[in-house]
Design a protein around this nucleic acid. Structure first.
Lengths: 344, 344
DNA sequence: AAAGATGCCGTAAACGTTTACGATGACACA
DNA sequence: TGTGTCATCGTAAACGTTTACGGCATCTTT
């Protein structure tokens, strides 16, 4: 059922049908009514390809996420909540959110170029930003509206929202120091994710502020951002001559492996070694003893991501006068049993 | 950069450029080479809207998942693994998998109709099939290639793959009976999901086979398929005059709530009441005592879903001569500590 | 009543492709 | 030379929309 057939049934021109359906003002209310009724009757919905071709817009926004080993193996509980928030904003504008999975053996940059060049979407969210991220330079050059989940050194004035890793790292160090710890280990994530750097720098600064000399040996990098990675990293920390009394983990999945590594060494998290995880997650929620970590309101984050993106798109800019969004998203401490005061 | 500009740079017609890029035979190898080089140089990629409009195909396959309260609240670890499998098959055919999230306050049927009518995708996966599912009838009527994850009474000869709920229910009852249990409760999921019925019927049949008279009071339906739902359902089972010695849960998330409900009643899973969950999941993986449940190879399932769908699409049918896929997907028991033999 | 404004609608071009069809030239063969 | 075949390429239509433009009534104003 095309617009042509619909127009023939109504004995009017296709131009009028199109104007009626698109809410143009120069159409008789009576005929508009007839058009809508006929469209409903025949189940007519405009062909998106034709419409896109004509007006150069697809009414779809992509959210690109990478299926790295972490995501594909453990599944991902993070994005679903964010998507819900994004959609709650898009709903009002008849924008569709489509999730674009970058296969784990594909180059994210190449994948992005393909999607953009094919003009599949009007705008994009990208996540897992690297410290230097080709994708951002590319999107800016091509003038594609986008919003980055995560900071980066690349690009300049593009919109982004990043979780408050700095605040989290600082709060974690402060809390551990207040509880008597002075040898505090840090496990960084495996990849070149920007968050690893932000986290490490804040950790370093907090230690210095407390008059503690940072020990490079206490900062280890996980082989992979996974349970196994946490297991291995904790193992290396335990092997130090002078092992830490507390360990901070930049990924909560790794906490599971860390717990297990401690257990295998005859130690126990929260008794022999204090542990602080990062983001509260369903998977780490049932660890025993409960993990001290940080909570983030993912639905609200999704809403803010959406409005921040729309604010950069000419067609929606006036509806969202929020300016350039470059937010640090706050997280709140969820105290657990895994980091009690140090017994002397 | 359109095909027209590219053709002008090369001083040849746009028809020849198109034929060259699409691998037609009637084009000089020399000019084909020139075309490819120029395309690479200028970064030309065909506009998808124009191509779709002309040949009525989008090279995109949709996977529709619903953001019900379960998915959006707890995140979803299930689909990511399936997607990875699907993509591994699609990759060879330059098909893009796009995930279509149905907002939780939208009617899935209406959402599906919109996506299909807009011709956004060439084919579809649908999941969370209902016992009677309007969507299936609609897709068959519109002759849209699709594959259902989950059985349904609707439709007839469409392709589907369903997890082996019947086998799981049977195995669970057999195992519990072998361990001395005779009063076995069942917690069904909240919604009208078809799996709930399949599960319950197999449970019923297995009891009868063992000479146990099924007690309707022992089958309860959760208010919601969630931790809270499991909490409430377990509560109702415990309130029975003669409470069950074992409980089967059709959803592993509910196991978490069930554990907690037992704990609140001064009981313990695996000691006072045996518990068997359904699908192994990262979220329920760290319950203590460990939950007896069933494992499923989700990546392989994704591969099979993809080939099953392609087999119904004319353009790919000859590549995948697998006939009509209607599979029961096997699951394997993962023994845990939650269902020890009954002490008499 | 003439002139201008307004409401409503039809016409046709344009978006970027693919592809059926025909044209051209080269070549082989009788 | 005339005829047929083949390789290669150009032409133009078609896909389904949206929208600028112009035209025709009808209404308002002087």
């Amino acid at each position: 059922m095309s617009i042509r057939e619909l127009a023939q049934h109504l004995n009017i021109s296709i131009g009028t049908v199109s104007r009626a359906l698109n809410g143009r003002s120069d159409v008789n209310p009576e005929t508009r009514k007839r058009v809508f009724e006929a469209a409903a009757k025949f189940g007519y919905v405009p062909n998106q390809s034709g419409r896109s071709l004509r007006q150069g817009t697809t009414n779809a926004i992509g959210f690109m996420i990478e299926m790295n080993s972490e995501t594909s193996l453990h599944g991902d509980t993070f994005f679903m909540s964010v998507f819900a928030g994004v959609q709650s904003v898009f709903k009002a504008h008849h924008l569709d959110l489509v999730v674009l999975l970058c296969p784990f053996d594909d180059d994210p940059y190449e994948h992005l170029r393909r999607v953009v060049s094919r003009r599949f979407v009007d705008g994009l969210f990208i996540s897992a930003t690297q410290r230097h991220d080709q994708r951002i330079d590319y999107l800016i050059e091509r003038e594609i509206p986008f919003m980055a989940l995560g900071r980066s050194l690349s690009g300049g004035s593009h919109p982004w929202i990043d979780l408050d890793f700095e605040g989290v790292a600082t709060a974690a160090v402060d809390r551990l120091v207040a509880r008597g710890h002075r040898r505090i280990g840090l496990v960084k994530p495996a990849s070149e994710l920007n968050l690893g750097y932000v986290f490490a720098e804040a950790y370093h600064a907090a230690l210095v502020r407390h008059g503690i000399r940072p020990d490079p040996d206490l900062v280890v990098r996980a082989d992979q951002t996974s349970e196994e990675g946490g297991y291995g990293a904790m193992g290396r920390l335990l092997a130090l001559d002078e092992r830490p009394s507390a360990v901070m983990l930049v990924n909560e999945i790794m906490a599971i492996g860390a717990y297990r590594r401690l257990h295998d060494a005859g130690l126990q998290a929260g008794r022999d070694v204090a542990v602080i995880g990062f983001r509260q997650s369903p998977q780490a929620r049932f660890l025993s003893p409960t993990l001290t970590c940080f909570d983030v309101s993912l639905f609200d984050l999704g809403c803010r991501l959406a409005t921040g993106l729309l604010a950069t798109m000419p067609a929606y800019r006036d509806l969202y006068p929020v300016g350039l969004v470059q937010d640090i998203w706050p997280m709140t401490l969820v105290p657990g049993e895994s980091d009690p005061p140090l017994l002397v």
